[in-house]
């Protein structure tokens, strides 16, 4: 099966406004990332604040223009398309943002928020639009009678339902969920996670699910990619990654999660220090400054891919870096 979305060596640098007469500095936010996503699949993307996961997602959707690399959507490189032609792809790829308070226009009713994508993408018939909006509201569990209300009249969970409805109303094939449940309470979070799973099944959606919450990613993803400072360090099917994490960063990340079971005894591997700045990222493997298992080679050469099984790829010198792809 060919992938729905294929990301190849994607790069994004931000130029910092430098001081006079000095060389300009770059934020190396995404630095050569490759992976693919298949139809109906959820790829979880985990990483700490500032590791570039949101930038990566925005580059895939062309909400930011990447510095280099390519994004293939059903085999077509969408980064090379002129914006006019790209618009047709916009309706096939959508995004749900983290903060449902900040991502809805407070001056519009929920109905007009949901109607707008249809207008933009050429649905001229008001009755057809209304029917679609009402049907979509129903699908995400919003009472259609509340559509004339404004976002501030809704709770956090309901607002996130509105955001999901807005993303899905154009019947996309691919949806980026950027921390969609991080702002929600535990009890409401479960409702939204269940809803996303149901909708995926019903509409055969592919999700790129970004989060820093490992329990959530474990719950919802088919495969997981772990990102550190602009690079992917490990990618594998969920069960395999959680049973057999290979990269020292993945291991440390998993061991840092508090487990809601007081009888559970962990082998602690608390990482030292904070993630370094992406302005002058460490040489070689970017994790080497915090890695408990670092070797001399780690600070010199970036690690090559190693695949213990066909779907599991890790970038770490510990595994010799024999290229098996």
């Amino acid at each position: 099966m060919s992938p729905l979305v294929e990301v190849r060596n994607l790069k994004k640098h931000f130029v910092l406004s430098g001081e006079w007469g000095k060389e300009r500095a770059f934020v190396d936010a995404v630095s050569g990332v490759s992976f693919s996503i298949f139809q109906g699949e959820t790829l979880g993307l985990v990483g700490e604040t500032g590791c570039g996961k949101s930038t990566l997602a925005r580059c895939i959707l062309r909400l930011l223009e990447p510095t280099g690399g390519s994004v293939l959507f059903r085999g077509k490189d969408i980064l090379k398309l002129p914006l006019k032609e790209f618009k047709a792809y916009r309706r096939r790829m959508q995004i749900v943002f983290q903060d449902p308070f900040a991502s809805l226009n407070p001056r519009k009713t929920v109905f007009s928020i949901l109607e707008e994508p249809l207008i933009i993408h050429g649905e001229r018939n008001p009755r057809a639009r209304r029917e679609k909006v009402e049907a979509m509201a129903e699908q995400v569990g919003l009472d259609p009678r509340l559509l004339r209300n404004y976002p501030h009249e809704f709770s956090g969970g309901q607002r996130q339902r509105v955001c999901i409805a807005r993303a899905l109303i154009l019947e996309p094939e691919f949806v980026v969920c950027d921390e969609p449940v991080s702002a929600l309470d535990v009890s409401v979070r479960a409702q939204i996670l269940n809803l996303l799973s149901e909708l995926q099944e019903r509409m055969h959606l592919a999700y790129l699910f970004i989060t820093h919450d490992l329990a959530v990613v474990h719950h919802i993803s088919h495969r997981v990619a772990v990102m550190y400072l602009g690079t992917i360090v490990e990618i594998a099917p969920t069960e395999e990654l959680f049973a057999n994490p290979l990269h020292p960063y993945t291991q440390a990340l998993f061991e840092s999660i508090p487990v809601p079971n007081p009888t559970y005894k962990r082998k602690r591997m608390v990482l030292e220090g904070d993630p370094p700045s992406p302005i002058h990222p460490p040489s070689g493997c970017r994790f080497h400054t915090r890695c408990p298992k670092r070797m001399e080679v780690c600070s010199v050469h970036p690690p090559e891919a190693f695949s213990p099984t066909p779907e599991h790829v890790v970038f770490c010198h510990l595994y010799g870096g024999t290229k098996v792809i």
């Binding site: 479960a190 269940n194 559970y264």
Partner: peptide, 14 residues
């Protein structure tokens, strides 16, 4: 309602 790492990944009890 908590997604668990130790349990199986079934539907959450919202």
């Amino acid at each position: 309602a908590l997604p668990r790492l130790d349990g199986k990944r079934s539907r959450l009890e919202a």
